[in-house]
Simulated scan of single mutants.
Amino acid sequence: MTRLLAALALVLTATAALAQPEAGRREWPNTDFSRSAVDFAEIVSGGPPKDGIPVIEAPRFRLARDETRLDPRESMMSYAPGSAPARAYPIRYLMWHEIVNDVVAAVPNAVTYSPLCNSGMAFDARIDGVRHTFGVEGKLRFSDMVMYDRPTESWWQQAIGEGIVGRYTGRTLTALPARMESWQAFREAHPDGFVMDEPDWRRAYGRNPSIGYDSSRRPFLYSGEDPLHGIPPPARVALPCSARSGGSRRRA
């Protein structure tokens, strides 16, 4: 409880300063704030600073059949390009790192996950044919992670892959056919697939870093409308296969 209260106090203090251009320029001197597509009042600090959540670069993989540390029911983000063996990215790792900059079948991609809204999306990381890598911005918009590309430090809305501030405002990343599924389902569908190995970071993998979030009655830092049909705001909603496109399971 003490850790939770301390974390909440830190975040509430951080969110007192909205991501207005005047304050943002000090932290983001390379971002073109003259171009934006959203109200800056909608962008709030999530607590960590720029790159305070370390992304995974050049991830290591192991054969799925050799991985014994994962529970069959654990969630994975999976990507099966067809031209290369399928890859699984365990949510237990994405929960702590949020972005994996990877290359699959010679195509650079960004596997992204926003823990507060449970949105998993994978994108082609090329813009105008040039590879871009992405980092965690440290801010949120509608509880969703705001990420940034390293070459221009433009800001992107993770859930839709759309540039919202900076040079790439209005541009949209190409979504890749990734999905969220259980570890058991992935292994059965892709016996010769690969799974991302545990990163070399000292993290409590398998636990949610946002203590108490999953049991809260109201989503953390969310101020929008409640979902329809009496569904609780933090509930997880599984879409039927016919409705899946890109990320497959999200919070209401």
Rank of each mutant, 00 (worst) to 15 (best):
M1H: 04
L4G: 00
V11F: 05
T13R: 13
A16Q: 09
W28R: 04
T31L: 08
F33K: 06
S36G: 02
A37K: 12
D39P: 02
D39L: 01
A41I: 08
G46Q: 10
P48D: 12
D51A: 05
V55M: 07
V55S: 14
I56E: 01
E57Y: 06
P59S: 07
A64K: 00
T68E: 14
T68D: 14
L70R: 03
D71M: 07
P72G: 09
M76R: 01
R87P: 10
P90L: 10
I91R: 11
L94H: 05
L94A: 11
L94T: 08
E98H: 08
N101R: 09
D102K: 06
D102V: 04
V104F: 03
Y113I: 01
P115Y: 01
L116D: 04
A125P: 13
G129S: 06
G129L: 02
G129M: 05
H132C: 11
L140V: 04
M147W: 13
E153V: 03
W155F: 14
A159M: 11
I160C: 08
G170D: 01
T172L: 08
T174V: 11
A175V: 12
P177W: 07
S182A: 02
W183T: 14
W183F: 15
A189S: 13
H190I: 00
P191W: 01
P191L: 00
V195C: 01
D197I: 02
D200A: 14
R202P: 09
A204R: 14
Y205N: 03
Y213M: 09
D214S: 11
R217E: 13
L221D: 11
E225W: 00
L228T: 10
G230C: 04
P232S: 14
P240A: 08
S242A: 10
S248Y: 00
S248L: 03
A252M: 12
